[in-house]
Nucleic acid binder design. Sequence first.
DNA 1: GGGCATCTGTCGGGTAGCTGACAGAAAATA
DNA 2: TATTTTCTGTCAGCTACCCGACAGATGCCC
Lengths: 219, 219
Amino acid sequence: MKTDLHTPDLIKELDKPEHARIRQEFREISYPRNALMFTPGHAEDCVFIVKKGRVRIYLAFEDKDFSLAILNRGDIYTTHTRAFVAALDDCTILAMPTAGFYRYMTGSPVFNRTVMGILGELLKQSFSIIESLVFKDVTQRLVEFLLYEARSHGTKGAEGVAMPIDLTMEQLAAVVGSSRQTVSTAINEMIKSGVLVKKTRGVYLVPNLEVLKDFPHCG
Amino acid sequence: MKTDLHTPDLIKELDKPEHARIRQEFREISYPRNALMFTPGHAEDCVFIVKKGRVRIYLAFEDKDFSLAILNRGDIYTTHTRAFVAALDDCTILAMPTAGFYRYMTGSPVFNRTVMGILGELLKQSFSIIESLVFKDVTQRLVEFLLYEARSHGTKGAEGVAMPIDLTMEQLAAVVGSSRQTVSTAINEMIKSGVLVKKTRGVYLVPNLEVLKDFPHCG
DNA sequence: GGGCATCTGTCGGGTAGCTGACAGAAAATA
DNA sequence: TATTTTCTGTCAGCTACCCGACAGATGCCC
């Protein structure tokens, strides 16, 4: 639901000469849009960094699925035994087996701290997701998601905060754990009430974050 | 929802002479039943081991709350910025500031691995919880919980697996994310259909785990 | 530009599960 | 043992939300 694994210039950092040794352990792999990148359980676990495109981490059960995170360029993640990983766009990642990663980790306190930080962050996000699922209804979960996107990927302009949300209603539903129809109506209610504005396909504008936060207001 | 931080003899291990130095960093603290042990946000983060009694980790929002885990003797956990920690019984813990714990960690690869393992386990559990919340209904979540308890704390007898579930319907509801009433009726349906037997207050018996697993069966 | 595929908005029916209420059972306290 | 507190079971009403259906919009490809 929330993605905050972005280490500003992880990729640039890795391209510096002093990290050449580590860098060369990463294999660059590309996937076409919608490709399944990793499935739970099998194959060797991987640590990977997104170089291009968006990557979706999700749980699936029968014919439903639920997005845990949508990674952007620079985000780092590790495969684990429960989640699926798929390409939301054509994308490229830098991947390395977890085992090899651990070797570097035990050698370097800095590296170690980084990994612990990532795990901790991941855990915090998980709790946020649980909190939303248990205590909030669909509309509130949508609001949380929009606020998060606005703050993390939005750009402030004269009319408010503009942000790219390049997801279909169905994909959005998978993020907040709801159905296409319910999300569609909820988003439209927000638009009608003016707390959200649709600029173009995939780009929305929030005139006022505070007002969005306590939607739906009295009435 | 699921608790598997039990390292068989963590407490005995810690009492061995070779660990005396670490052991003395832990402070022993006791709390009465229902006491709030840690709240999110404030005070210093702690790593702690349960020595006596049960400890509940939970999220709270307005007047609702949701249990993330119920720790038993020997379980280890770390405070973090989101969850509350309360005493389910009169209990005693061994606690140590997270910062100090980290110092030992960086020095010792074994220690390090242990902590990484705990974090990983915690993450896995979180995903299990999310999966249940998103994909399963209340009855199925209850079944999962009962199966988990049976496997982890049950004792196999002639009539099936007996296990202690010393929780009120309300506490059980907090574990599966539902209401007292709904849980009460669901449990009684199980009892009526024979997949679950109430031995005495706080002790239940599962005649057959497989049958419980696919409750409710056809009809 | 025409046609196909995907995406969107909306309506109506069905249902899981929440809430409040209340009486009876069990435990705790005296 | 008597009394109070907590816990349990069950009912009825309500609501959020899921699902199927379908028409209209939008984007994509030859």
